[in-house]
């Protein structure tokens, strides 16, 4: 249901923005697609509502609990840590931030000792850096510690 509402919002935004395009041809295709999404999302919501009205609530509850098992508090922590890592990487540089991130993930997920987690984190980060920067010539962020 939530995804359907999001799709409806996105399709309305897409149609509105397409209406502002100065070139009609550029607006046509996304507008058609957005209109179809809008109609089908409403239809999907209606179907779900009918199903829940006919006793589909039990089924929905079961599937919901299966999913919530997969995405728990530790997943939220992981997501927050990843977001923080991405924010810090341009400032701290790749090796320092990646080592910190890996060590943090291992501490949080596996309750690993600080030294072991840091050793793995910085070792693996250095290995990845050697492959991407050394072999593939990718300019990874260096940050303040350049």
């Amino acid at each position: 249901m939530k995804i359907n509402i999001l799709l409806i919002a996105v399709s309305i935004l897409a149609i509105w923005l397409a209406g502002e395009f100065p070139v009609d041809e550029a607006a046509a295709f996304p507008s058609w697609v957005a209109w179809i999404i809008l109609i089908l999302s409403i239809l999907d919501i209606a179907i779900s509502a009918c199903k829940s009205g006919k006793g589909g609530l039990v089924e929905n509850k079961t599937s919901g609990s299966e999913i919530s098992d997969n995405f728990d508090a530790s997943s939220l922590i992981m997501a927050a840590m990843t977001a923080a890592y991405l924010l810090l990487m341009p400032f701290l540089g790749f090796i320092f931030s990646s080592g910190l991130f890996c060590a943090g993930v291992l501490r949080a997920q596996a309750r690993m000792g600080l030294l072991r987690a840091a050793a793995f984190g910085y070792g693996f980060s250095a290995f990845v850096y050697a492959i991407f920067a050394g072999v593939m010539n990718v300019a990874l962020p260096v940050g303040f510690f350049n």
Binding site: M78, T82, Y85, L86, M89, P90, F94, S98, F101, C102, V105, L106, Q109, A110, M112, F120, G121, F124, S125, V128, F132, M136, V138, A139, L140, P141
Partner: peptide, 27 residues
């Protein structure tokens, strides 16, 4: 251990996305 794999996959995914165009936006 799966925890190592998970951390490794996340790190490789992030660097892999970055390596495409050297762009943090892709990450």
């Amino acid at each position: 251990d799966e925890k190592y794999i998970k951390a490794g996959v996340l790190l490789l995914s992030i660097v892999g996305s970055y390596a495409l165009r050297n762009n943090m936006g892709d990450v």
